[in-house]
Write a protein that binds this DNA or RNA. Structure first.
Lengths: 200, 200
DNA sequence: GGTTTTCTGGACTTGCGGGTCCATTTTTGC
DNA sequence: GCAAAAATGGACCCGCAAGTCCAGAAAACC
């Protein structure tokens, strides 16, 4: 992938990806013009195609990977420490807060969009993100089961899948309505359901 | 909007919208070429701009409205008769079935995508659909409350919002993974939560 | 049946934006 | 320092698809 890349080159490449990511956030995937990326990052067409021989598609794939990683980073360390109800609540609040702040500029929403989705490579990026995300939630559920805070009969993976779906749908609706109602309702419903299992 | 449109003109216009909708389903929004729509519907550029002076954008808006209406039609009459637990289950199964059959060709997913989302008009279409959808679910919940199958303390609108988010997220993940796991898990979680409220 | 409106066909223009190419400069490695 | 490789700048090409325009056919209207 990366073959003989000097520090300077590395920096430029990074600048391009970051700039393109910002452009995607600001204007949406299909509104991204290579020209704009160049302007924003102070680079030339030669550089762009030097670092991304595959052109726009390759660049957007790199952006997708970059943003996907960021999604989970933004939730850490909370997502990795779902070991008590207050911790779950803190994570929930963080998620809501993050997407509320972000508002309409959703890199993830952009990734999920029809434009890039088509290519298997970008699909893989999104799928990978979802798998990791769901895995982290499931781990949290299993930990809560080990302490008896969640009933042992609960299927952790399935519950995590449901919660993830609620989050994604909530974000999607946030993008369209500008309100966090759905996201909050979905998270709270799932958490309440899990809490409810502990009491026999 | 529609001013002096002969039967023949009406038919042509309808053919164009239907053809464009099919094109969107098959190839995704941003892959739709006016030329392809013309070929599929056996129309000419003159006709296209005759019926949609606003060009591509206006045509896609009409398609969006068309598809949004279809989403709810496909769930009827089940969605309008959520008056017993078996009815809820039947509706749940219908939703899962519908999107499973549809697979990757999701008109709604296309609408939600970044391409069209930008314009306020298409946003309004999607928002309107979501409002009606959530309203129907909420009505179902309220009916179940009236019969005592769901606890009166439940906030019907909020629960419906959560369920809708789960559905949207489930469909989104279905589009990316090709599996209905998330959709099913989300629906089941929500339904179980509602069922659970009845027993004290 | 003649005039007016609507409908249809398709040639043409246009602009945007991705991709190519190469000349020049800078860095690396020895 | 001096070749080789990497990095940079930007002029140029070119295809695609949206949108324009107008002329001719069909229908509506009285």
């Amino acid at each position: 992938m990366a073959q003989a890349l000097t520090p300077k080159g590395e920096a430029t490449r990074g600048r391009i990806v970051a700039g393109a990511a910002a452009e995607v956030r600001d204007r949406g995937v299909d509104e991204v013009r290579l020209e704009d990326v160049m302007a924003r990052t102070g680079t030339s067409k030669g550089q762009l195609f030097h670092y991304f021989p595959g052109g726009k598609e390759e660049l957007l794939l790199a952006v997708a990977q970059h943003e996907a990683d960021q999604v989970l980073v933004d939730q850490q360390p909370l997502l990795g420490e779902l070991t008590s109800w207050p911790a779950w609540q803190a994570w929930r609040d963080r998620v809501v807060q993050r997407y509320r702040d972000q508002g309409e500029h959703c890199p993830l929403g952009a990734l999920l969009g029809p434009a890039v989705r088509r290519t298997p490579a970008t699909r893989a990026v999104v799928t990978g993100l979802m798998r990791r995300w769901q895995g982290a939630i499931a781990d949290g559920i299993r930990h809560m089961q080990s302490t008896g805070d969640i009933a042992a009969e609960v299927d952790a993976d399935r519950a995590a899948a449901a919660m993830l779906a609620g989050i994604q749908g909530g974000v999607l609706l946030l993008l369209n309505t500008g309100r966090t109602d759905h996201l909050e309702a979905a998270l709270d419903l799932a958490l309440d359901a899990l809490r409810g299992t502990a009491r026999p």
